[in-house]
Design a protein around this nucleic acid. Structure first.
Lengths: 383, 383
DNA sequence: GCATACTGTGCATACGTATAACCAGGCTAC
DNA sequence: GTAGCCTGGTTATACGTATGCACAGTATGC
């Protein structure tokens, strides 16, 4: 698809080497300047219009290339006069330092990756948004990485040098990625989901405790016919929330027979479908392992004319923004998303700042809280 | 609040450069940490541990470095035996080619940027998701760029060589960015929003026509007291949808007095607030310039116990996924998001493949369609 | 048997920036 | 006056990959 072109289209550019003709260089620079200005393409076989480099600025300002670099990076050893002259020249030429060259020289790219497999879940959108805010002050850019056709995030894409670090959000329990990254010394943090025996930094909410909160709330309200829609057992969130909810019911002696629970992928349609099925068990309450499942369920119940919470109580997990909308007012277990992201960011930055040093793994576990809204209440009297 | 569980660490790999003192590394790390914290722009990186390079592979396989490069890139001129040996050696060493080195040599990064200022709008989430799918086959990566504290996307971030091209989604009408990018010959496409006299590729929906559809529908249903919540006049979507809607009303002779229209930013809260205000005018129908505004309005009306569409009809614009949920069933003007994104992607890829060539600007305009759901109907009889 | 073509590989170098090392010149200290 | 020290730069080089080109070795043609 892309045209392959010899890259030596400008091999004759002899930028100020000793013995080279200064006049030729000047002519080339002038030619280039006008070409760039006009947006014309006088180099018909160039893959890209040659851009202004620090060498061009150096020549125009009458200094050496390293001086340009130092001036623009604020090296205090330069005289004010030189710095000013260089900066002005750079602006006049509309010079923008090449991130490519800088990356190679500094061995860092100024980019961090965030691995998300499920862009359809508003939870991760909020994570992206928060992360973006957290990174704003650090001059780091955010590269969103999503799995390829094989549903995996290629190891190579993370460690090929285009990233200084990464946040992994949708890791599955049996993923080999964290181990491989650790072994290579690549800075990363697991966010939201974790894996067992992870030799790496982790930032999660206490999913077990959170789900237990939900179970206790429903039991205390007097529900005995409780249904549950759990997430995939291949994820820590799915597994731990299920375990916590079951533990909460068990502690109260409330059963969870097979016809009253399901496991489903964490998405709207799955919640919609599974909720419809679970209604067969005649539950008075439904716990969903995350908000997007709960919203799917909410819509399914709404579509069937079932009133919430009068006929069925509904509790979710995550507290995405949607949960607080008037039409939903979803009772849910709240994760402090901004806090989680900022903790993860701090973990990541620390690890990036200590690349190569054997820092012990850190594990941050946030406490979830229950947000009482309007989708839960006592079971209907007749039940 | 934070429970920290130290787990044993096993990062004993000290393949630092020989003789380089650990103290120096510590100092660098500390410097970085404070620099990152302070947001300083000078010396903000740590030296990463040296990784395996093509030179290492070459030495191990008994060939030259260029041969490694050719072997791994599938150059047909190499003998099969050599190719196989190099590939096996590379795998054994867990070699991953450096994207940094490759970028510099090829003058391309394999990354495209998508500029989004409003990650809170599900519309752009869908755009991101679609774009990711569209890029999946191209081996291009997606870099999400959001405005900085000054609410602008720095020109430098786009043209510093870390991107091969970009898609601009939230461009404002008076933005100087497109002109600057065009002048520099940087490949990019405007998506969703455009600017006047743009000397660049554009992919938009016919906003004027779409809004006119909505106006006509309401008029034909018999509404005469129609309210409208428009978007910012600094955006083409805001301006054109407003003009289209006004034109539609005017054609039918239906007035739009000042107390029945507002302009608001394209977000949920603004829709929520403005809808409440507009109710004062006693409208029987409300048009919102996008779905997120409409959903804000929907929730506001729902919160005040106003029935939709029995008391007030509601029409949005965009047709985000949420609009189709059971609880909303929002009547809206549909943009074909996948089609739009794939058209934009095609425009961008074409331009990237012809960098430096003076291709004429192309403009793709998609036709919007009206999606009849359940938030609109005839005005209440008593009105 | 010699010119020619072809095949496979190495060599040299380019990409653009950052930084270590060095150096000229003016100044101070004694 | 000379050793030492700042000041303000320069030169040389590294970062890792891709590719033009040279070249050795082999096959081909006549």
């Amino acid at each position: 698809m892309f045209r392959k072109t010899p890259i030596t289209c400008f091999s004759e550019r002899d930028r100020g080497r000793p013995g080279s003709s200064k006049r030729a260089a000047d002519a080339a620079a002038k030619l280039l300047a006008s070409a760039v200005r006009a947006g014309s393409s006088c180099y018909t076989y160039a893959i890209a219009p040659r851009s202004i480099t620090s060498h061009d600025v150096a020549r125009a300002a009458g200094v050496s290339q390293p001086t340009v670099s130092r001036a623009l990076r604020g090296d205090p050893r330069l005289s004010e006069a030189t710095r000013k002259r260089v900066v002005e020249t750079a602006e006049a030429l509309q010079y923008v330092p090449s991130q490519r060259g800088r990356s190679l020289a500094t061995r860092s790219s100024g980019q961090v990756g965030i691995v998300v497999s499920d862009l359809g879940n508003p939870f991760y959108l909020q994570v992206l948004d928060e992360l973006h805010h957290a990174l704003r002050e650090t001059h780091l850019r955010m590269l969103v990485l999503t799995p390829d056709a094989q549903e995996t995030v290629p190891f190579e894409r993370l460690v090929d040098g285009s990233l200084d670090g990464a946040i992994l959000t949708t890791t599955v329990l049996d993923s080999k990625l964290p181990a491989a990254l650790s072994e290579r010394g690549f800075p990363f943090v697991l966010l939201n989901r974790e894996i067992d025996d992870a030799p790496c930094d982790v930032c999660v909410v206490d999913n077990h405790a959170g789900a237990k909160l939900a179970a206790r709330e429903l039991v205390e309200l007097g529900h005995t016919r409780i249904a549950a829609l759990f997430g995939p057992s291949t994820t820590s969130t799915g597994r731990d929330r299920e375990a916590g909810f079951r533990a909460g019911l068990e502690a109260a002696g409330v059963p969870l027979p097979d016809e009253r629970w399901r496991r489903a992928p964490f998405d709207f349609d799955a919640g919609h479908r599974a909720a419809t099925e679970l209604l067969g068990g005649g539950p008075t309450a439904l716990f969903c392992a995350n908000d997007i499942l709960a919203l799917g369920a909410f819509n399914a119940l709404h579509g069937r004319g079932i009133r919430i919470p009068e006929q069925v109580s509904l509790i979710g997990f995550d507290d995405v923004q949607l949960a607080g909308w008037d039409v939903f007012q979803l009772t849910t277990i709240s994760q402090d998303i901004p806090g989680m992201v900022s903790a993860a960011t701090e973990l990541l930055l620390t690890r990036m700042a200590n690349v190569g040093d054997p820092l012990p793994p850190r594990r941050v576990v946030l406490e979830p809280t229950m947000v009482h809204r309007r989708t839960h209440g006592p079971p209907p009297a007749k039940a």
